[in-house]
Simulated assay, not measured.
Amino acid sequence: MISGTVVGQVWSTRRIDGIPAGAFLEVEVDGSGSRLVAFDVLGSGVGEHVLVTQGSVAASWFTGTPPPVDALIIGSIDPTG
C-alpha cells in the first residue's frame, strides 16, 4: 500500500467502456514526491491524505470483468490519527 496526498484531478473527454463510475486523481506519494494517477470511488478531494493499492489487487476489487485500473484509492487517512 502507498500513502499519499491528492494533488489534482485528471480530466478526460472520453473513457473506454468498462470503467466504472468514479474519478481519476493525481496522488503525490509520501516521502518520494513522485506522482501517480489513481482511480477513486470514495469521493476523495484535493488535499486529502489517502491509501492507494496497485496492480491486480486494485483491478480485482471490482465485480465482473476487472477494468484496466492499476491504482485504486482504498481509504482516507484521518489527519488526527
Rank of each mutant, 00 (worst) to 15 (best):
M1C: 02
M1F: 05
I2E: 04
S3D: 12
S3I: 08
S3E: 13
G4S: 01
G4V: 00
G4N: 00
T5I: 00
V6N: 07
G8M: 06
G8F: 07
G8R: 05
G8S: 08
V10F: 06
W11R: 03
S12N: 11
S12C: 13
T13H: 04
R14D: 05
R14H: 06
R15V: 12
R15M: 11
I16H: 07
I16V: 07
I16D: 10
G18E: 00
G18N: 00
I19E: 01
P20F: 13
P20K: 06
P20E: 10
A21L: 02
G22I: 00
A23K: 13
A23Q: 07
F24A: 03
F24I: 02
F24R: 01
L25G: 00
L25S: 01
E26T: 10
V27K: 00
V27G: 00
E28A: 01
G31D: 14
G31F: 14
G31R: 15
S32R: 13
G33I: 03
G33M: 03
G33A: 04
S34Y: 08
S34F: 09
R35S: 09
R35W: 09
R35C: 06
L36G: 06
V37W: 09
V37H: 10
V37A: 11
A38N: 01
F39W: 00
D40M: 02
D40S: 02
D40V: 01
V41K: 05
L42R: 15
L42D: 11
L42P: 09
L42M: 14
G43L: 05
G45M: 05
G45R: 11
G45S: 13
G45P: 02
V46H: 08
V46Q: 10
H49G: 05
V50M: 04
V50N: 01
V50R: 00
L51D: 05
V52I: 14
V52M: 08
T53G: 09
T53N: 08
Q54N: 06
Q54P: 01
Q54D: 08
G55T: 08
G55S: 07
G55Y: 06
S56C: 07
S56D: 11
V57Q: 15
V57T: 15
A58R: 01
A58H: 02
A58K: 01
A59Y: 13
W61M: 13
W61H: 12
W61I: 14
W61G: 09
F62G: 13
G64C: 10
G64T: 10
G64Y: 11
G64S: 08
P66W: 02
P67M: 14
P68C: 10
V69E: 03
V69F: 03
V69N: 04
V69S: 03
D70R: 09
D70E: 12
A71G: 10
A71D: 07
L72G: 12
L72F: 14
I73S: 08
I73L: 11
I73N: 07
I74L: 11
G75Y: 04
G75M: 02
S76M: 15
D78S: 14
D78K: 11
D78M: 14
T80L: 13
G81R: 08
